[in-house]
Each structure stands twice: as structure tokens, then as C-alpha cells.
Simulated scan of single mutants.
Amino acid sequence: MRLAPLITATALASLLLSGTAHATSVYPIRDRVLTANKLYRTGELEASQCAERDVKPNDVPAAKRYLTAVLNCLNRSWGTHFKQAGLTFAKARIGFITKPRKYCGDSWGSASATYCDAERRFLVLLDDSLLEDTSDLFLFRLAAHEYGHHVQNLTGIARAYHLYPYRNKSELNEQSRRMELQAECLSGVFIGSVWDSLKERGEEDWQTLLEIMRNNGDEGEKIRSHGKGRNRAAWLDKGFRASSPQVCNTWPASASKVS
């Protein structure tokens, strides 16, 4: 959980008198770790192989094997990419639960999976809701999205995000959306790089996944922290079409693109 920076009474009075807030200015985002990260200049991910394993609905052991295999692909692909770009790399790990529990210091909430920066690991909640229909690419995209957070962690984006100031909940939620939509885009980058190896998949499968994302946005949620469905689908597709992190710089994007 991110905490708003403390402002003393003297500092607050000074800000009010001057009409400016340099110490807590948040828009536009000015931290170059976020807006001009080396990640954006690393080029396309090399095309690689990542064959899907079979997984039937409500089959927890098969889902574990499926997601572990995808993680192995992610570690190989991003590991090669980081090495070629001269960036420091460390593998991510995965874990599984069948009931929500506290993780990484926070309550679980309604997520299907959660990445923990400190552990460089993400947990996946293999419940009936997630495993009811395993015919689409949602599980594949879920692992790739959480790995997007791992990429953010390795490149310093996660730390810069957690330290970046905000003045109110609205600004905090928008920063959260920029972070989540970037991970969405990075998941598309990976999927695009291995698409030709997914022999059983075609354009219809991709469009189905985009439709799932359009129907799973923040609309109607009390806390709008992940983005509207149309924006989640748009950033996912943008990464997929480019296969390059260059297109995933959500930090200078207009507010409407990260709403």
C-alpha cells in the first residue's frame, strides 16, 4: 500500500500562500525512471517458442503445470532480452493458492493473481471463477501480466511508482492505472513475441481475449485502479502488435488513455 507523503503545517501554509506545490507536483509525471526508462529503448522481444499445455476446466494440477510452463517461457524470453540490452535480470517465481489469503503484507482483495516486489514472485488464486473456462487465453495473459510487474520491478519502475507523490486519491488511482496498464501492455509484448508458436491460436482467439478484457474494467468499481475495459484491451493490443516495450510508456499518456 502506498502512503501519501507527509506535509508539515508550515510547508502546507507555504504552498497555499505561493499557490504552487513543487514538492508534491504529480502531473505531468516527471520522474525519468518512469517516463524515460531504459526499458523503452531495448527494442523488440525476439520471437521465441512457448507451446501451451493442455488444461481442462477446474483442473488445479493441470493449471499449475500450464502456468509454470508459461512462467518458464517468460523467464527465458525476458532474460534474453535483458541480457542483450545490458540490463540486470533475475527470474520471477510463481506460487498457487486455492483460497484468498494475506500476501506481501496486504489482504488479497478480488485479484486473480498478485505480484510481490520483495519476493519477486506472484501468487495465482486457482479458484472456480478462474478455472471455470480454460479454453481462452486468459490464463496465459494472466501470467504475462504479473510478469509485467516483475519487469517493472527489475527496471526500477516499481520503486519509482511507489515513491512518487500524489495529492489525493484521484491522483493515486490514476498513477495506479498507469502502472497496471503498463503491465497489461508488457503482457501483450510477450504474447506477440511467442504468437507464432501458439499453433492452435488465431486472430479469433486474440479478439476473444480483448473482449474479455473490455468486459473486465474498472467501470462500476468503487476504486478505479486498473483502468476501463476499453483501455485495458487497447494497451494489451498495443503491446501485442508492436512486440516492443517502447509502446508501453503509459506515464506521459493523456488522462483519457489511462482512465
Rank of each mutant, 00 (worst) to 15 (best):
L3A: 10
T8H: 09
A11E: 15
H22D: 13
R32D: 14
T35G: 00
Q49F: 13
Q49N: 14
C50A: 13
R53K: 15
V55S: 03
N58T: 04
P61F: 08
T80Q: 14
Q84H: 12
A92I: 05
R93S: 15
R93C: 11
G95E: 13
K99E: 12
G105W: 06
D106H: 11
A111G: 01
A111Q: 06
S112Q: 06
D117S: 12
D128W: 05
T134D: 01
F138M: 04
F140A: 09
E146Y: 12
G156V: 01
R159L: 10
Y161T: 04
H162P: 00
Y164N: 04
Y164L: 03
P165G: 08
Y166Q: 07
N173E: 12
M179E: 10
L181C: 03
S187T: 06
V189C: 01
V189Y: 07
G192K: 04
K199P: 11
G202V: 11
E204M: 10
Q207L: 09
L210D: 04
G220R: 05
G220M: 09
K222Q: 11
G227L: 00
R230N: 08
W235C: 02
L236C: 02
G239L: 02
Q246G: 10
Q246P: 00
V247H: 02
T250W: 02
S254C: 07
S254E: 15
